[in-house]
Design a protein around this nucleic acid. Sequence first.
RNA 1: GGGUGAUUAGCUCAGUUGGUUAGAGCGCUACCUUGACAUGGUAGAGGUCAGAGGUUCGAAUCCUCUAUCACCCA
Length: 899
Amino acid sequence: MSSNLEKTYNHHDVEGRWNSAHWESLGTFDAESSRVIEGDKASYTVLMPPPNVTGSLTLGHVLNHTLQDIFIRYQRMSGREALWLPGTDHAGIATQTVVEKKLRKDGVSRYDLGRKEFLEHVWKWRDEYGGLILKQLRTLGISCDWRRNLFTMDEGASSAVRHAFVSLYRDGLIYRGKRIINWCPVSQTALSDEEVIMKPRKDKLVFVRYALAKRPGEYITIATVRPETILADVAIAVNPEDPRYRDLVGELAVVPIAGRHIPVIADEYVDIDFGTGALKITPAHDPNDFEVAGRHNLPVLSVVGRDGKMIDEFGYAGLDRFEARERITEDLESRGNLVKVEEYEHNVGYSERADVVVEPYLSEQWFVTMKPLAEKALEVVNDGQIRFHPSHWISTYRHWMENIRDWCISRQLWWGHRIPAWYDQEGKIWVAESYEDACHLAGTDKLVQDEDVLDTWFSSWLWPLTTLGWTGKDEDNKDIQAFYPTDTLVTGPDIIFFWVARMIMAGLYFKGDVPFRDVYFTSIIRDMKGRKLSKSLGNSPDPLKVIDAYGTDALRFTIVYIAPLGQDVLFGEEKCEFGRNFATKIWNAARLVFMQREKVFGSSDAFSDLYQGFTPESASLSDAQQWITGRYQEMLGSYHKAFAQFRMNDITRIVYDFFRGDYCDWYLETLKIELDGERDETKNRHAVCLAVYLLEGILKVLHPVMPFITEEIWHHILERDSSESIAHAAMPQAVEGWSDDMPKHFSSVQKIISETRSLRAVFGVPHDMKASLVVSAPEESARRIVTANAHIVTRMTDCSVTIEDGDLPRPPHSASSVVDGNELFMPLEGLISFEKEIARLEKEADNISSYVTRMEKKLSNKGFVDNAPDEVIEGERSKLADAKSNLGKVQASLEVLCN
RNA sequence: GGGUGAUUAGCUCAGUUGGUUAGAGCGCUACCUUGACAUGGUAGAGGUCAGAGGUUCGAAUCCUCUAUCACCCA
């Protein structure tokens, strides 16, 4: 006999036993293209969003990876060749920063070491610490094919990056140009627009007057939040429609401090209502000004350098830009140019990694032309080739795609994929996949490679291809044939532009097909006060500590249960009590079932022989058994439907409700009673088989969410080798029509039990006192059902049960109630103050009669009767009839009591 | 300024195409530890479904406006 479970559930034991190393050594979660190509299995592929190699496990990862694991395990159990592709990304800025910081402690800068030696340090760091996140992910019990783990800097992935760059360049979609880009003065690199976070910031709006060169004593006043860039002004612009300034257009203004003469120009870009309506134009330090300057053929002057310090010729050089701002404001005041200063709150761009204000900076950078890529990528989402869950993200995606700007992909870093572009001695650009190829093209070996590296996302956007072994060079390998396009992508909505959109572009461009079919956007996790989790707030719980305290299964279950599709999640560690309690409940329910199995079956073989061929269809079922089997079928139906609709938290809800509400609270209670009362060995054996059968079904549907505890209990159902896994068991399917055909007798028994318990409680019948219950049922069929289940009613209510036909006069001094047209009486002789019962019945009668009034009004409404569908009207009529009959019975009870 | 979403019990949230006397968990109250489980069981209290209009025989559900909050993009 498979032994019973330990008396108490210990998640450390169970989760230790079925750990990742165990399954990895067995290859349990490895997927093979041969089983798809040569076998007839359908494939199902999930791409892990590569966590940052510098990262450590967060609750966001927990939610995200749990969801991916749920999808992959569900599909694996549903018979598909399920491949989950893991990996990490090299996180250019973050990693380089971490390593530089470490070196700085030893007083060494990357420039001291030189590029080659610095990169050796980074690789060393990565080998030492980069595996942390992967190790932590394994504690989540996730079922990826770890053999295929990929790092974006691996040779295959790097080759793919070079290939992608070269193809895009040759197709004219990559170019190099001098543009205003977002510059991070701390990391000293360019950033893409997406890496800039807009944050509200309080600044001073400074009003400055510029003297007009040809009109002594006259001024034009502008408003700016960046007075330090006045030194780089090349014009003052006004709106051509603005009557205040019309006659000033064409005049020359004198730049304060700098003394330069600049023109007053007219441009529609200027907002008449902002500030004074006159705008200083500083093309080197503002992208919009840059465009204005372009339209008017104005020069471009810079006064802020790479490190955010001034580089002007007017005495501020070397000052930080914010310091210079203060100083210049003071100087403007002393020179009489300062008109006034206003407090001003506006949105300012900060660099994502270093959290400093980005500086618009004019420099030579590499860009990807996005428009042609975006058009196709938008099309496949618009026409449903790729589906978003929840679908409202389509609008955000569309908006971005329709207003897309070119992607700045060069970074002034050392850690990353070096741009495969070389310059010859004339400065001509040669783009090729290798130095040799470039020399060949250029006809010289005197080439110098571009110093910059590519944006990390330039490798991430190839992730659906590189994880399957695409290097850009070969024909499709077997993995690509079998597993591309992938199926489901689970990711946070915060990287919809960074990653999701760009992968779609890359998939279409390089492979001619979408990279995935469904994108599930996860919830964003916040703390109990609704604040974003952040290290600086100290409000992000350490998932490993939560796992230690509550168990992985508990955390996984809880976080999915509380994460509704498309809404933020408020997480507090203590919420995991919910999942932990649920796990304990499962454990204890299984123990009960196994105890009963031990009692009924003598030997392991006897049980296993009967159980292995057992189906509910093959047994003759009691009312309770029919009912629970029907409920099980309904549960399976809604479970699979929820999966098909990506309603992941409903899945946990559906299983939870069935298990607790139906299986434990009702069915297992009746099982105990039936096994106690029944002397028929065959019936008992069938009863146990059904209980185990349903338990096994529950374990299977729960397994994608709680892999550990379900594995453990599954191994106690039959003797199974530790190399076997429930992960490869077949997912149960609902039997068509089962629950429609099954009589629902037990439902009325449940109602009688609940009502009787309620009567006992409301009247305070002492729990240790056996009461008696009289069921007066007018229908013969109802009497039959109650009779058949009388022993269950008795045990579950602590009442002796008498069944009478409907003519029974009310027993004296009885509490009463009505269920499905049957009257329940509970004689309270000598126990209870009757006022209490009278009060209760009066309240009840009030409720019912107000309901009756409403229904009568509704049904006498001509509009309703004429317009509503017949079955609705029928339904309302029968509700009214039921209510009236209940009301009559309650009133009769009242009369009896009052007399 | 443009867009997206939210507002239901003290708290966190369900409520599937309009047709229930609006549900759950946590918390609260009362009672219950002899054999699965107190990380539990049974019963109970608690809601004008943000506000105002509208559509409809009928609105938590559809429409409009308002308020508050959150996020995204300028």
